[in-house]
């Protein structure tokens, strides 16, 4: 990949509605390599970015199934295979008594994988990201809304894209240094 002089351009908006409209306009203009940043989740913006499905529920489901199976077979292996104890002829695989621990392990597996899955799919923890090079970006965690178009987008042209973003009613457009 060739080294680009800048990472992209970033437009700052003052309201969530402006960001949603700007994201739609940018998508309609053909930009694809872009992302929006906001102090809270805005469903309309995510939809406009064309990001409709996440794999987090699947990861969580797999984690839960794995946890549940591991929990049950841990008990089965201990009480039936590895260390069977005949107590008054009661069944070794007393699965009813195993339900609680199986349930707890299911919840544990699913919860841990929901968190780790979310972080992994988001690429977090991430110590460095170019967007933080823009000083105004600190307001993305307060009350400002940002739309960044990456320089590697095929339609990206520093002058055209700059004017395009300005035309969206941005308060300010800045370059994102690499």
């Amino acid at each position: 990949m060739r080294e680009l002089p800048i990472w992209g351009l970033m437009a700052e908006f003052t309201s969530a509605a402006d960001l949603a409209i700007a994201t739609r306009r940018a998508r309609e203009a053909g930009y694809r390599r872009m992302d929006a940043y906001s102090p809270f989740g805005i469903e309309a913006v995510t939809e406009e970015l064309g990001f409709h499905r996440t794999k987090v529920p699947l990861v969580c489901l797999i984690g839960g199934i794995f946890g549940g199976l591991a929990g049950f077979f841990l008990q089965y292996w201990i009480h039936v295979l590895n260390y069977p104890q005949n107590i008054g002829g009661r069944p070794l695989n007393s699965w009813v008594a195993f339900i609680v621990v199986t349930f707890e392990c299911t919840i544990l597996g699913a919860s841990v994988s929901a968190l780790l899955g979310m972080l992994a799919l988001n690429g977090l923890p991430q110590p460095y990201h170019p967007v933080f090079n823009v000083p105004r970006f600190a307001f993305a965690s307060k009350d400002r809304f940002f739309l960044a178009i990456q320089a590697e987008d095929p339609k990206f042209d520093i002058h055209d894209t700059f004017r395009f973003l300005e035309g969206l009613g941005a308060r300010d457009v800045q370059e994102i240094p690499n």
């Binding site: 994201t23 992302d35 929006a36 940043y37 906001s38 102090p39 809270f40 989740g41 805005i42 469903e43 913006v45 995510t46 970015l49 990001f51 996440t54 987090v56 529920p57 969580c60 839960g64 349930f103 919840i107 699913a110 919860s111 929901a114 968190l115 899955g117 979310m118 972080l119 799919l121 988001n122 977090l124 923890p125 991430q126 110590p127 460095y128 990201h129 967007v131 933080f132 970006f137 993305a140 965690s141």
Partner: peptide, 26 residues
């Protein structure tokens, strides 16, 4: 952990948050 409030991140975040709520309930 480098949270930057990306719209894609928020979507996964919300999904995971609701799943955790659903798991914590039972």
């Amino acid at each position: 952990m480098g949270w930057r409030g990306s719209a894609r991140h928020w979507k996964r975040y919300d999904s995971s948050y609701r799943l955790l709520a659903g798991l914590a309930t039972p």
